[in-house]
Design a protein around this nucleic acid. Structure first.
Length: 209
DNA sequence: GACCAGGCACATC
DNA sequence: GATGTGCATGGT
């Protein structure tokens, strides 16, 4: 993957806090839309935990509007930032003092932070080794029959971590590359126009005659 | 106009 | 515990 696509330089962002915000805003959303939302926050001088914490929900929703699910993501951002401000003095660097399992447990307990968002924050904002699983990773690994099709998040994570040395930079690059491959070659509905079965009637009984 | 995008919580069975 | 649904905008 690295030979084909080169280094991905993830996560795009100027600070760990920006990475955290991006991790929430990119939930089920195209990254270009997230960039617009983050630009809005920057232009409003609002990319700061305490400023967002004290901002009215309507104002925050208006700024992050391009990333979609604005009301939902307003609450989710406020939740994770409340955790950061109230328990860690608003300084994301303080989170680095905790072991990965503890961080993950704390993050996942926040409403709006699921396993992928938690892992993204831990890997890309805190630079600690935990493998991030996303839709593309799931799709690629199952379509290549590397893992059971109904494998869950934790199964996929375990598979990846078991088969790779525990290394932050490797996990970083590998996940970013899987996303790159997925975007280009692993669409949700595979194009079937070249399938030889298309030459035959779409009745199962007729395929046998 | 349909489909898709770097999920998650909640309801229901 | 598995499965279905709502959440919303912008690009292709």
């Amino acid at each position: 993957m690295l030979t084909a696509f080169g280094h991905q330089h993830w996560w795009p962002g100027d600070s760990p806090f920006e990475v955290l915000v991006g991790a929430v805003l990119t939930q089920n959303t195209n990254w270009t839309n997230v960039e617009k939302a983050i630009t809005n926050l920057k232009n409003a001088n609002a990319l700061d935990p305490f400023i967002i914490r004290d901002m009215p929900n309507e104002q925050l929703a208006a700024l992050i509007k391009p990333s979609g699910y604005l009301n939902l993501k307003t609450k989710r951002l406020k939740n994770v930032i409340a955790f950061l401000c109230e328990k860690h003095e608003g300084d994301i660097e303080n989170l680095k003092n905790y072991p990965v399992y503890q961080l993950r447990e704390d993050l996942v307990s926040i409403n709006g932070i699921g396993p992928e968002t938690a892992d993204s924050i831990i890997l890309y904002a805190l630079e600690k080794p935990t493998f991030v699983i996303d839709t593309y990773t799931h799709r690629i690994l199952t379509r290549h029959q590397l893992i059971d099709p109904d494998a869950q998040y934790e199964d996929l994570k375990e598979y990846c971590q078991y088969n790779l040395p525990e290394d932050t930079q490797l996990y970083n690059e590998c996940h970013a590359l899987l996303v790159q491959i997925g975007k280009n070659y692993c669409k949700p509905k595979p194009k079937c126009e070249n399938c030889p079965l298309n030459k035959y009637p779409h009745q199962l009984e007729e395929l046998y005659t």
